[in-house]
Structures are given as structure tokens and as C-alpha cells.
Amino acid sequence: MSATALPKIREETPFRRFLHDYAQSKLAVLGLVVVIVIALLALLAPWIAPQNPYDLAQLDIMDGRLPPGAQSMGGMTYWLGTDDQGRDMLSGILYGLRISLGVGLGSAIIAGIVGSALGLIAAYAGGWAETVIMRLVDLQLSFPAILVALMILAFLGKGVGNVMLALVIVEWARYARTARAAALVERRREYVEAAECLALPRWRVLFRHMLPNCLPPLIVIGTIQVARAITLEATLSFLGLGVPITEPSLGLLIANGYQYMLSGKYWISFYPGIALLVTIMAINLVGDQLRDVLNPRLRR
């Protein structure tokens, strides 16, 4: 465009450096591509799926449990077979991805933001704020995640929103505790003292200086939490408390196929399982690389 850009030495912004560092791992790039593809598939499911698996009128039990590649009575091909209701597995997986991904990512992000912020505040502010927050954390962690989620869903009833709410309630405390643990160590480091000596505003010290240093454990936890949220959702569905049966998530598709594993109808839970596995592994690959890249102390 202009002559001054000729030497192609771009100013190094943190974001460019981040991109550059991220691209160091081919696997992580692949992971990112897969995540993007899966996200697109999930978003576009209503337009690309051969069937609306949530519309009972489009299903026929006479097409139930057909193996992959079978033809429906209406002449449609079920590439990945059908489940017991005659639901096209491919469509079911595409729609299921929407729910599983939405529930998993959504709850992990909300819980991460809420939890980390509270954890940092607790570590930095100390005093009554810390007592209140950490007692809440203790209260939360006193209840096993699966049981709290079970109880909440038992009170509230099934539904995507309720599952997300339950997962956030269950997971925020983990971030808070981890953030606080990391921040307690960080707080005693010289740079915090230096920042305090400079009389920088407290929130600035907290979120600009301490937060980046506390991120590595939080990202490790966060990465695992996305997977865990999806798994937990699957488990809740398995126990009959997750999403409604007429709108299955990947977890519920697997749970539905669970009872057919021993009778050789592997595809009902196998393909959703693969979809789940690929999704989670891709997210984790991205998360892994993010952790390496975002960790200031590894940046040498």
C-alpha cells in the first residue's frame, strides 16, 4: 500500500506476538481449525442437516435403529444410521453439537469469569471480602458437583438453560479457589509490591498485573472444565435429568445408544461419541497452546 511498509517489519503488538507464538504448534493450529469447523457446523445445523431431529413429525420408529448407509422408507439415506426413534444420527449429531458445545463453552466461560474474578478479589482484598468469598467457595465445594447439579435439576426440571445454570453454580468455585491460590503466591512477588509502591489503582494491579500471571493454572482448569461441563451434561442426561429427550445433546445421544452397545448397534453411541471426542480434543489442543503462549514466564 505505502512505501514505508516495504521492509515488512511490523510493529510487534501483543496480539501479533500471540498469533505468532500460537502458530508454533501445527497440532494446535489444526485444533483451532477443527474447533472453528465444528462451531460452524453447529451454528449452521438447521440449514445443513438432512432432517430436523427435534421434530417428532419428521421421525418414524419404523426407521429406528437402521445401520449406517441404510435407506429410509421415504428414500432418504441415513449415512450414520438412526437411533431408536428413527432419528437420523448425522442430523442428531449436528444439532447435538449445538447443545453440547453451547452448554459446555457457555457454562465454562461464565463460571470462569465469575469464579476467577471472585478468587482474585479474595486474594488481593483480603479481610471480610475474602472471608465471604472463600466461605462461599467452601460451601460450594462442600457439595459434590454431580450431586449439586442433580439436585438443582431435580428442583428446576430439565432444560438447556437449567443445565447451564447448574453447571455454572457447580464450577465457579473451582476457578475462584485456583485463582486465589495462584494470586496468594503472586501477591508476594516483587512486581506487585512495585506496582503498589507506584500507587497504581488496586483494580489495575489486580486485573492488569496479577491476572495474567494467574492465568496458566486458570486456563488449565478452564480447558478441563469445558470438557468436564460437556461430560457432566452427558452424565446428567444419562441419569435422566439433563436436556429433554426430544432434543438430545451429544451426551444424551450417547446415553440413548448406551443400552444398544451390547447388542451390536454401536453406531447410536459410537458416532456421537466420536463427535464429542473430536470436539473436546480440539478444544483441549487449543487450550493447551493458549496456556503455553499466554504464560509470560515461558516467553523467553
Binding site: 417428532l56 413429525a57 431435580a154 435422566g240 435429568l241 429433554p244 426430544t246
Partner: peptide, 12 residues
């Protein structure tokens, strides 16, 4: 008859 299906645990 447009049917919505809701299945829940026996308890509820």
C-alpha cells in the same frame, strides 16, 4: 395432533 413430549424422573 401436534405433540410435545416431556419425560421426567419418576420422583417428579
Amino acid at each position: 395432533v401436534q405433540t410435545n413430549v416431556d419425560a421426567m424422573t419418576w420422583t417428579t
